[in-house]
Nucleic acid binder design. Structure first.
Lengths: 342, 342
DNA sequence: AGGCTGAGCGTAAACGCTTGCACAGACCGA
DNA sequence: TCGGTCTGTGCAAGCGTTTACGCTCAGCCT
């Protein structure tokens, strides 16, 4: 019932081979013929059967995006950047999320995707993660976001430098006990975490400041988690006078915890976030801003380039970071105030 | 190089037809044979070629999700619910976003998706939207989220009732001038908007309260937009003492605008949002909570059902709403206070 | 004993493209 | 004029499945 290439061939008075070549813009087709074929295809409202085309050509015509989460701010943003680039290409975008480890019955992406994609786009996932590492066996081009790996394209920011910048800012404000709200206990499948931890530690070490486990707490990259983490730290013997949260969302939770304890962010405890979430402006949060959509877009472009030029050497691009200073960070108040009560 | 069904057939000592049937769980295969085939396939790490399978069977093996946005809270959430259901199925999830009208070069989804999906999942998009309406011509099953249409499955909430509940709450608190922060000027491709507007209007009419264009402003479903809308309303001759925002994000902006004007949400101006965004708790925002992930999940289930039982009559499911009252809404203060200055 | 049923399996024809190869004719330089 | 190259086109062999149809044989009923 649906049109086939044969119908077009007959109608245009050429062979199916010519139709195929004409429609795909291959060389060695007379411009006149090509145009005629185009017109016929247009008139008959013909589109090639992707299944047949893929079977015959051996190309899958799709790329997979593998992400730990879909609903969270950062990932949605990155995904959006990816989609904007891909929608203009011929490729289908297959979405596959890893999900929480708690979701036991998840089918690992590499199983679901075998033989059906031409390349992978992996967001924030450590390349050794179970279900991710198998991807590299397929020998297809891979563009990594927030991670690196031999032979893969990658796009990201300098997480170490970002974290360092955040912590340095706090140090410059006179803070000496600087807390960290991290994601999950290491090791995690979520990669940037390690680097932000390194940046945090290095900044402290450089300034001869204490790096204590007592100054750290996990916030699981959620608002609630951030709130709990801050609360935990406040309950400890020597609470920090400033904290660096690995994500804005956790920082939001931290702000809330502070308020719940009658403390004013900035004045009593300084907080720096990481991401550049729109909400940070509204909550007056100092944060490290990363160009999230662009990260996604650039990664998608890299993958397209890899697909177009299979021999080309992978590039790694690092996008710039900036810090936006707002009211949540301020000069450390004198000792007596800080260490006083609690 | 890659395994084919023939390799498995040879190795298992059966025909390709039997392999096909065995692997897909079709009847009329001896359990012993089936198991043997399974083992061989497993051992040789064989997976069927989707392209070949699709070509031969005529099924596309994918469903498309069509959404206006990916990065925004509501859509990410819904998408996440969809993905959770679909990942357990055999179907690929093709993601396609409509994007803003400003992005002129977007390829309309129905063009990109022709012949490559078995069904559609459409989020929040009015069925007459350009690029969406063409989808129904394909005669494939469609599950609609937040919309209805003859012959389609649908899942959503009662937007009219939700808006009404919000506004009624404000009325109960004694408010008489109740503002509305809507999305875009109607008509919009984003469907729930109309119904929330109706709920708003009806609640006011029932209470014999004014419905004035002066009490409305567009917030474009963004934080900034919400902020601008609130600011606009505050600048008018008779500002409202309470506002209903069609989304939490716009409500967040409204809260911010109030604070910027030295007004305290709740005490000076009451605000109700819509969605149940996590952040609403942190900003102490009263809101109408909808089960967002579940909406996505249920819609995906509906589509799977439609695919499994092509003759089954479409269902429409309406999920329950609830209101969470927080500090952003409070009894209206006496006239003198309200209408006094400004 | 003969026929009927149904379970289990194989044969082979699609499915609708892509692409290697061959070929005809135009064009060109010697 | 003649071989050579290049352009535009057609032929036909795949690509790796699914599935209609047909066959065999065991079990069962008359």
């Amino acid at each position: 019932m649906a049109m086939t290439i044969r119908d077009i061939a007959r109608e245009a008075g050429v062979s199916t081979a010519t139709v195929s070549r004409a429609l795909r813009g291959l060389p060695n087709v007379d411009p006149v013929t090509r145009e005629r074929v185009r017109q016929v295809a247009e008139r008959l409202d013909y589109v090639v059967s992707p299944a047949a085309s893929r079977l015959a050509s051996g190309r899958a015509g799709s790329i997979a995006v593998i992400t730990p989460y879909i609903a969270r701010w950062y990932f949605g943003r990155v995904l959006s950047g990816i989609e904007k680039v891909l929608q203009a290409s011929e490729l289908d975008l297959l979405l596959s999320s890893i999900g929480d480890p708690s979701e036991t019955h998840r089918v690992p992406p590499h199983r679901k995707l075998r033989r059906r994609v031409d390349g992978f786009l992996v967001i924030s996932l450590s390349t050794e993660t179970e279900g991710v590492s198998e991807i590299f066996e397929a020998d297809l081009p891979v563009a990594l976001i927030d991670t690196q790996r031999e032979g893969c394209w990658s796009v990201g920011i300098d997480d170490v430098a970002g974290a360092r910048m955040a912590v340095q800012h706090l140090i410059n404000l006179g803070h000496e006990r600087i807390g960290l709200i991290s994601g999950r206990p290491l090791p995690t499948p979520f990669r940037p975490e390690e680097n932000r931890w390194i940046g945090y530690r290095d900044a402290l070490l450089d300034a001869n400041l204490a790096v204590e486990t007592d100054l750290e707490a996990c916030g699981h990259f959620t608002i609630e988690g951030g709130e709990r983490a801050m609360t935990t730290m406040l309950a400890r013997p020597h609470p920090p006078t400033a904290v660096f949260a690995m994500s804005d969302e956790m920082a939001f939770g931290a702000l809330r915890s502070l308020r719940a304890h009658g403390l004013q962010p900035g004045r009593d405890v300084s907080v720096v976030g990481f991401d550049g979430h729109e909400m940070s402006e509204h909550l007056d949060l100092t944060t490290i801003v990363q160009p999230v959509e662009e990260i996604g877009a650039r990664a998608a472009q890299s993958l397209l380039e890899a697909l177009d030029h299979p021999t080309r050497e992978p590039h790694q691009v690092t996008l710039p970071l900036s810090m936006v200073v707002r009211g949540s960070t301020a000069l450390r108040r004198s000792r007596t105030h800080d260490d006083g009560d609690r």
